[in-house]
Design a protein around this nucleic acid. Sequence first.
DNA 1: CTGAAAGCGCTTACAG
DNA 2: CTGAAAGCGCTTACAG
Lengths: 355, 355
Amino acid sequence: MIFLLYGCANVCAIKKHTAMSRATIKDVAQLAQVSTTTVSHVVNNTRAVNPATRARVLGAMSTLGYQPNILARSLRKGVTKTIGLIVPDASNPFFAEVARKIEDLGFKQGYSVILCNSDNDPIKQTSYINTLLAKRVDGVIFISSDSAPSDLSRLVDNHIPLVVADRDVSLEFADVVLLDNERAGYEATRHLLELGHRNIACITGPYDLSPSMQRMEGFKRCLSEFGIQFQPQLIQTGDFSIQSGKVATLRLLSAGPKPTAIFALNDMMAIGAMSAVNQAGLSIPGDMSLIGFDNIELAGMVTPSLTTVAQPIPEIARQATSLLIERLAGTRNGSNQKVILSAELLLRDSTARLE
Amino acid sequence: MIFLLYGCANVCAIKKHTAMSRATIKDVAQLAQVSTTTVSHVVNNTRAVNPATRARVLGAMSTLGYQPNILARSLRKGVTKTIGLIVPDASNPFFAEVARKIEDLGFKQGYSVILCNSDNDPIKQTSYINTLLAKRVDGVIFISSDSAPSDLSRLVDNHIPLVVADRDVSLEFADVVLLDNERAGYEATRHLLELGHRNIACITGPYDLSPSMQRMEGFKRCLSEFGIQFQPQLIQTGDFSIQSGKVATLRLLSAGPKPTAIFALNDMMAIGAMSAVNQAGLSIPGDMSLIGFDNIELAGMVTPSLTTVAQPIPEIARQATSLLIERLAGTRNGSNQKVILSAELLLRDSTARLE
DNA sequence: CTGAAAGCGCTTACAG
DNA sequence: CTGAAAGCGCTTACAG
């Protein structure tokens, strides 16, 4: 790749930093001939101020381009109006969609969110917990990258409200919003069995994560209720990435009993599976039925469109956000809540009756 | 959708907030029998401290679970080690990938990034600029949601270094990293023309955004160099979303001159186009060639795999981040830089010779 | 309706 | 090698 650098000294000379720095409340007070107390009260609308005085203050603020320093305010008030959001990887569409929604909802209530990608790395996860602690976020929404995150207790020790979402971690002191993954896994499997499939492969996520584990349990329970023998050779472990879904599928196609259907435990792996199946010259759903999980936007757009178990993504975000903000606002105290949402089978074009 | 609420008063009773709040530097100093000055110096490794003293301080820190309050530090030092990143929509994979990379690079250099989704909404964009100003970020990386963002000047007025990426905005006081979009648009078009296509449709982004505009210019220039008449009926405007690509394609297929190839100005719209073409019972590339733009991870995974103009996403992130951090670190002063990266045509399976 | 002053938790120039 | 004290920019109880 080539890249060009243009210096542009003439048009784009940067302004020299002048000695004068940003306007503070003091500058405003001086210009408006009032105390900083009064300025503060007009900025925050927190006590009655004579209309004429208020007008003077407002004028001074605007001529100075005054923007209150949030750091100082937060330090003084002990509240930052900021929440931390830790996700495994925001470039995965499922987390991206959840994060977007949380950001939206937070924004509407006056909270900014600091988005942290733990990158499925416990070290980075710990490091981010420390950063959030140091930045004095008011609360944290947490989607774990592992099953037993160690440093979460430090949040609790510091009285920082915590909401655990999507992936269950055995933690006593948090509100929790999860999916009924076992049942969802069961439904997906039943759909395939009812279509006549008997050799059903499953591409899982990391074995220790609760969504993967529980969906698998539903898968197994359903097989057993239908009297079908569970075949370990039809199970492949992925990591929820497209690429891993592709690799897993190539392995399934190259050895062992031939599946006629694949249950991928998320849509991204299903899309990877699709690519592998096509590459092998097989067609979906003619030669292979495929069902995903999540219902990311893409699932409806690939060809054939993907049958999937739809997670209520907006509802997950809404519950997580309001659980947290209720705590922060003090409108809810006492015992923790556990919200279990249910998924919904969404029939599209990637599954068909076994001929 | 059904959701269940379990109260769990027994196991999960939340700890009452005790009167004792978080440990401060004063608490540490007291416990270690030293001044706060000394504690500060051991925390920051900023002057020699007697080994025995240092050990006492370290001990006190750990028994108190001390975490320095970054707000106080930032207020005092006038530096927050935080950068603001404004993107139109981080649930769009292109921006998600750029953002991920910037976050990674920033993290390695000790910066956190505040991610702001302007949502293609100038109002929200302005509001975020104010928030970033109030939070006293050290610098901003900006991908605009419109062609003439109004409040960007406030950053410059406040001496906050600014890097504009991806979408050009006519602004004098910023470092800039862009793509050579005109040439990239030209190359994509030439590829289709060389395959024998003459009726080439183009699905654009919002007309006023520089990437869309410039890629179109390359498209037109190439047509004209090949002596092909430009047909306005073959141009459809999208908004870079999957859905808009689908809608645009359905319109193209339902009326006007029939194209044999489509140039979508990003991959997401190309994926939408793919869905529409398939839905119409046409095959890619047999009946319709299709080329995208960006090379998001997905582009290689759909079927057929998508021929596209690959943007050097990691390099864009790297340039933007280092341009900004150099300014912040003071290792670069003076005139602004303009980095123009070039794209690369990536041939895959969605384009073919016109029979 | 308004203001003087303390204090949030740090860092750092100054002094020893 | 160490400490006393000022000050970053706000908010707010207290007083008038």
